[in-house]
């Protein structure tokens, strides 16, 4: 037994983000239980139901110009940030409030791994259930619908579709990382959710060129031809170039910077 103890003690933790695999396994197990199933069923019913309703529309349907893949894109634009804020605002605050954070951190895990597991857990869960599965379902069945009027339901180019999913995931990542970073700073959920929601609204209004051109806000309100259509719709449905591309890189840089800030702040916390 003594020898076994020593052998086990001799097993070295991984050098890069030690403990991440175990922590992430724990985070993802929540998605595979009832929680994940409920989210998936509700979101699927909402998204796919709305797509079906739109395809059945006629001239009197107020959303007739929004049907098809552009509807899917708009739903993602609107609801993914809200889902990210709702889920991730509590990530660290809940662990701190329930006193489970010090318990987990007393194991051979690094604080950076703890933060990364929170981010990746929500990102992977939402990506799979809210983006990937919904996107694949729409990609399969939407082109089979006869587009009696409105937009063409032709199947978009695969690479463009993947790129759109990637950009949606990047935006999702931004709001998750923002919420997790804020939850390392604040002790209550209110300010975390409020700041996230304000920023979400700001990106809709895109009041400044900086937000517009160098973050995803530019994709939302890209000044493109044709009222009512957004940059990603233009890119996906009408095969226009993605403009401005700088917004994708800008958002990616923000995601990295906010992740670094979250880990640095959390590493200083005492329990």
């Amino acid at each position: 037994m003594a020898a076994e103890n020593r052998d086990r003690a001799g097993a070295r933790p991984s050098r890069l983000l030690p403990g991440l695999t175990g922590l992430l396994r724990g985070e993802l197990s929540r998605w595979l239980g009832r929680r994940g199933l409920v989210h998936f069923v509700l979101w699927s019913a909402f998204v796919q139901g709305l797509l079906v309703w739109n395809t059945l529309g006629d001239d009197t349907n107020p959303m007739r110009d929004w049907r098809g893949f552009d509807t899917l894109i708009h739903l993602w634009w609107i609801f993914l940030p809200l889902a990210a804020i709702a889920l991730s605002q509590n990530a660290i605050i809940e662990e701190r409030h329930n006193d489970t954070a010090p318990w987990v951190l007393s194991k051979p895990v690094s604080r950076s791994a703890f933060v990364m597991a929170k981010i990746l857990g929500d990102l992977i869960g939402l990506f799979v259930f809210a983006i990937l599965l919904q996107g694949v379902a729409a990609y399969v069945w939407l082109p089979k619908v006869d587009p009696a009027q409105g937009l063409p339901f032709v199947r978009p180019e695969f690479v463009r579709f993947v790129a759109v999913i990637g950009i949606e995931t990047l935006i999702l990542a931004f709001f998750i990382v923002l919420s997790v970073m804020l939850s390392t700073v604040f002790r209550r959920r209110g300010p975390v959710a409020a700041i996230g929601l304000v920023l979400w609204l700001v990106t809709w209004q895109a009041p400044g060129r900086v937000i517009k051109d160098f973050t995803f806000g530019g994709l939302i309100t890209g000044e493109l031809e044709g009222p009512g259509f957004k940059a990603l719709t233009e890119y996906l449905v009408f095969e226009q170039p993605l403009d401005p591309v700088s917004s994708v890189f800008g958002t990616a840089v923000l995601v990295v910077a906010l992740t670094a800030a979250a880990t640095l702040i959390f590493r200083r916390e005492q329990f």
Binding site: R12, G22, S29, G33, N98, P108
Partner: peptide, 24 residues
């Protein structure tokens, strides 16, 4: 720890499995 707290949604077996996976 002095005040023992666990994730309330895990059962006893899952708590132990979770902890075991945090060790190398």
């Amino acid at each position: 720890p002095q005040h023992t707290r666990f994730h309330p949604y895990r059962n006893c077996r899952e708590v132990l499995s979770y902890v075991a996976h945090l060790y190398p």
